[in-house]
Simulated scan of single mutants.
Amino acid sequence: MMTAKPSTQSDPAMSSQTTQWRASVLTIFPEMFPGPLGQSLAGKALEAGLWALDAIDIRRFASSKHASVDDTPFGGGPGMVMRPDVIDAALEATLAPGETAIYFSPRGRVLDQALVREIAARPKVTLLCGRYEAVDQRVLDAREVEEISLGDFVLSGGEPAAIALIDAVVRLLPGVMGAPEGLDEESFEAGLLEYPHYTRPADWQGRAVPEILLSGHHEKIRLWRRQQAEDITRARRPDLWARYLARKTDSKKKEAKR
């Protein structure tokens, strides 16, 4: 079991020279972290100091007697809104010079592998986890907060989204994955969904493994897998397929101009 605990201070392992990437999470539920991030590959990398995690309680920055972080919305309506003064104080104490925070919102750019790689290239990321109805728009504007969405569905708060983003980033960090070359063949890396996988037994309940995978002919296997990936993407994700074709067309045009 991992020993990493929510903290606003760095543990010695986290401060080691091997740390490549740091995530600071602003939340009213710091006990939700590291959660699943303390297990498996992400957890081992956290323990080894390959990345660092700070779970920071937003309530620490509230000035009221009861540490309230929300209030009723101007103009009426359901729910509560997180106060701009509290959120701004939390961001001021957490953001590195020149850093912009990420706020999880249905209005944001949809998270994809390209954006994950972009975030992985940053030395640090501050994730603002909203709760209640929303965060006051003024602090988002004043801090030029970057908004990101996991998709067209609603969560109770930003914490599950933060866990998903961090997990996606950490597995890209050098030294985390056992076979980094395998990252190149995963879904979305080439703009396609991944091809199907098979293992022993070769015949299971009357379903046989495709013969090509037993042939030992690596080039034919590679071509078969690419064809499978294209067929699956075209059938299941026409949006990805359209972007894939557009990129191929652009690449051919650039090559022709050389």
Rank of each mutant, 00 (worst) to 15 (best):
A114G: 13
L115Q: 12
I56G: 04
S15C: 11
G77I: 09
V135Q: 10
D85K: 00
T126K: 05
S68R: 13
D112A: 12
V154L: 08
A55P: 08
V110R: 15
S64I: 06
E47F: 03
G49D: 10
S40I: 15
V69H: 01
T27V: 01
L46R: 02
A23M: 11
A67E: 14
Q113W: 06
D88F: 12
K65W: 06
A120P: 08
G158V: 01
F61Q: 02
G77R: 08
A101R: 02
L155H: 07
Y103S: 07
L53K: 03
L91G: 06
V135P: 09
R60A: 14
A96N: 14
Y132A: 08
G98I: 01
V139E: 01
R60I: 05
A121P: 08
P97Q: 10
D136C: 09
R138H: 11
K124S: 13
S16Q: 12
G108R: 12
P73I: 09
K124N: 13
V25K: 03
G38I: 11
A45T: 00
V125I: 15
E146G: 06
V86H: 03
I28L: 15
A101P: 00
M82I: 02
G98L: 10
R59S: 04
S105W: 08
S64L: 06
Q20D: 00
A90V: 02
S156P: 06
D152C: 03
Q137N: 13
D71Q: 02
D88W: 10
P78M: 07
D85T: 02
E146A: 13
V116Y: 12
I87R: 00
P123K: 14
G108D: 11
E118S: 13
P30N: 07
G79A: 07
S40Q: 12
R109P: 09
S149A: 06
L46F: 08
G43D: 08
A96G: 06
E144T: 15
V154I: 15
I148Y: 02
V86E: 05
D152P: 05
L37Q: 10
F29M: 13
E147P: 07
I58D: 02
I28F: 11
S156V: 08
A142C: 09
G157M: 06
E118A: 14
P160M: 10
R107H: 09
V139M: 06
K124V: 13
K44E: 15
H66K: 01
D85E: 11
I28G: 07
T27I: 01
R60H: 15
L140H: 06
S16A: 14
D57F: 05
R131G: 12
P36N: 05
Q39Y: 13
S156K: 03
R83Q: 14
D57K: 03
T100W: 03
P30S: 11
K44Q: 14
P97S: 12
A93M: 01
L155W: 03
L140K: 04
D57G: 07
E47L: 09
R138M: 09
I119P: 11
A114Q: 14
G157E: 04
R131N: 13
V135E: 09
A121R: 15
W21L: 07
M32D: 07
L140Y: 04
A42G: 01
L50N: 09
P36D: 06
L95M: 07
T94C: 14
V81W: 05
R109W: 06
R107T: 00
